[in-house]
């Protein structure tokens, strides 16, 4: 990916090649985007769940602590606006790179977020491996579950965002929408939000951070850097492709600074802890 080649070019001189090599996986804007995404998502979940389960004791207690419904709605909208801006910035970037600059690999190819035939094969191959019926698939830059995460969030933001703004500015949206659409907005907003919360705090957490290969946390989304060994194991297809194309050198990075690792751990574990608490509260409200 070009942005990574640039990033590698501008990065500090790599540590002496003795011992382990490190590679850049995410650029700073990508990490910042993820940080904005998970911060606002936690904020939206923490303020949205008390609304969805408004009759539970914890929701009422939480509302009392923060100053009632007015405060909850204020923070919900504040987070929503920030997330919307981040989403729009991302869409603008994709359009600029893919359509205006005609950058390759945005909409198609091994580095694209768009699903392809390999993803289907990888999915079935992965299942075969789970059951001990075949070898572990060699993944490209973005594996099928990562693409699913991306598109789930993308679709989720469109759906939740649109229904949310329809409720926020109901009299305005009522000019274009049928009467029942305002009712549907709450159903869609609530259900899709619930799906996002359940998915992120269970499936995404395990797939990305808590599974044995990454446990307890995959730091690459915070530092942007991963070790060569990790790269080879997790995305063998991408590694081999870069070697074959002779582009591996462009991706070499420096080992993350200790303070960055410490900071990332603190932020990451806090986010995971909040997410798990919210997950427990959600499940308790749904099934107890």
């Amino acid at each position: 990916m070009p942005e990574l080649e640039q990033a590698a070019g501008t990065s500090r001189v790599q540590s002496a090649a003795q011992g382990e090599r490190y590679f850049q996986r995410f650029t700073r804007p990508q990490r910042v985007l993820h940080a904005v995404l998970f911060t606002t998502f936690l904020g939206l979940a923490a303020t949205g769940l008390p609304l969805r389960f408004s009759s539970t004791p914890w929701a009422i207690h939480f509302a009392q602590q923060v100053g009632g419904f007015g405060a909850i709605l204020f923070f919900h909208k504040l987070n929503a606006v920030v997330l919307t801006l981040a989403f729009l910035v991302h869409v603008k970037e994709v359009i600029k790179r893919g359509l205006i600059h005609r950058e390759k690999g945005i909409f198609w190819g091994p580095t694209s977020m768009v699903a392809n035939w390999k993803d289907v094969k990888d999915l079935f191959g992965h299942f075969r491996w789970f059951l001990g019926l075949g070898p572990r698939p060699q993944f490209e830059r973005y594996a099928y579950w990562e693409k699913f995460d991306y598109w789930a969030v993308f679709w989720g933001m469109v759906v939740i965002g649109f229904s949310g703004y329809a409720m926020w500015f109901a009299p305005f949206f009522a000019r274009f929408l049928p009467g029942w659409a305002l009712n549907a907005a709450l159903v869609v907003h609530g259900e899709e939000g619930l799906l996002a919360i359940l998915f992120i705090f269970s499936i995404h957490f395990v797939n990305t951070h808590l599974r044995p290969e990454s446990f307890p946390m995959d730091m690459v989304i915070f530092t942007g850097i991963e070790s060569e060994e990790e790269f080879k194991i997790k995305r063998a297809h991408e590694y081999d492709r870069l070697v074959a194309e002779g582009k591996l050198q462009t991706r070499v990075g420096v080992a993350p600074e200790p303070w960055l690792i410490k900071f990332s751990r603190t932020v990451g574990f806090t986010a995971i802890a909040i997410g798990l608490v919210l997950l427990v509260l959600t499940l308790s409200a749904m099934f107890l």
Partner: peptide
């Protein structure tokens, strides 16, 4: 609308619950 949202929620979560559980075990 509610039916669609519920089916989406249940199918996505069920699929990935199985997928991820098998993955973790393996």
């Amino acid at each position: 609308v509610r039916l669609f949202m519920n089916l989406l929620l249940i199918s996505v979560l069920t699929f990935f619950a199985i997928h991820t559980l098998l993955w973790v075990i393996r």
